[in-house]
Computed example of a mutant assay.
Amino acid sequence: MRIVAVVNNKGGVGKTTITANLGAGLAARGMKVLMIDLDPQASLTKSFFTVDESQLFLSKLQTIGAWFRAPDKGRAQVLADLVFSPPRCNALIGKQGGWLELVPSDPLIINSESLIPGAVDNTGNVRAAKFVGLHRRLAEDLADPAFSKYDVVLIDCAPAFSLTTKMATVAADMLLMPARPDFLSTEAIQVMGQRLLELTRDYNKHRQAAPDGVPEMRMPRVAVLFTMVQWHNGGPIDVQAQFINEVTALGVPVFGTLLRDRSSAYAASGRFGVPTMLANGVAPEIRTNLNDCVDELLKMFERL
């Protein structure tokens, strides 16, 4: 099983769109895919429902909030019980042998530390004795046999380096960082690198007091995927090409596939409760662009 956290401190860069379409693309190739929505905005969860359906369905779904409130004993089973299978999406995936499932988000996880029993002291800070266990919570539960049926887990993270994002980072084999090719996104990539260094340092410092057998944390593999790229004369416009080259010069792995700016097409498909990859009426070049991204991700898996 490969675990990919889709992260960026900056909002509006396409994290949810990427997560949904990569999940659909991998499932369409016969893979068993689980998506976990760790963004309190719940955009990934809502993207699998039409506007008319959303209130009815979402009111009936159990959310990730139940897992945060669960005691340690039997916690992995709580997470497994939250899995929901979007019927429309899986019907479109067809008979390729794959399927797509989702753990829905919860707005309350914006204060996730306060939901976990005994995680914080009376000042609101994470207890030092709980630090490693808290950050390993998701990694340990995804290692439970209940999740062994999945080939890939995709985690859609909030636009902040909060506890939920840190949990996803510790659990992940790979961090996929969507970014617009502009100054602010380039800066956000550098900030994320610093945050990862700090998390690795803090985790390993607290690990010294943890029980034997707790693995050391190493810097996860990071890959940047540029989104919303404006195309002209066979390539990105000059100002965006400059930022792409600057990030590449940092030595950060960068997807060769550039996701072009097709905001209207992505927005339109969202109204029908399916990812753009599976929607009717999508221009062939958009679907090809997304499939190229899936191809490249699979090659990265081979190198992990």
Rank of each mutant, 00 (worst) to 15 (best):
D121T: 04
Y150L: 05
L44T: 01
T63Q: 05
M219G: 06
Q96D: 14
R136C: 10
K95N: 14
L197H: 13
P253V: 06
L176M: 12
Q41G: 00
P87A: 12
P284E: 09
A168V: 01
F183H: 13
Q242I: 12
A139W: 14
A268D: 15
A24P: 06
L92D: 06
L22T: 03
T165V: 11
V191G: 11
P86V: 00
V103I: 14
V4Y: 10
L298M: 14
Q242W: 13
I286R: 05
M174E: 15
L34P: 02
R137G: 09
V51T: 13
P275L: 02
S105L: 08
A20Y: 01
W231Y: 14
G74P: 03
R260H: 14
K60F: 12
P145C: 03
I109F: 05
P178M: 00
D151E: 05
T50K: 02
N8K: 01
G133Q: 01
T165I: 01
L142H: 01
N9H: 15
S43L: 00
L82Y: 07
V83C: 09
G273K: 04
A283E: 15
T19A: 10
P284M: 08
L199M: 04
K73I: 12
P40K: 02
L100C: 02
F48Q: 00
M167I: 11
E302C: 11
Q96M: 13
N21K: 01
V229G: 10
S105T: 04
T19W: 06
L82E: 09
F243T: 13
D173V: 04
Q77F: 12
E187F: 13
P117L: 08
V229L: 09
P86K: 03
V191T: 14
A66G: 08
P145W: 06
G124I: 07
K95Y: 14
A188E: 05
R180C: 12
L22Y: 03
V103Q: 04
S105R: 09
R137N: 10
V224S: 08
I155F: 00
V274A: 01
P159Q: 04
S105F: 09
N204K: 05
S148P: 07
G23P: 03
G193P: 05
L250Q: 13
R207P: 04
T165M: 11
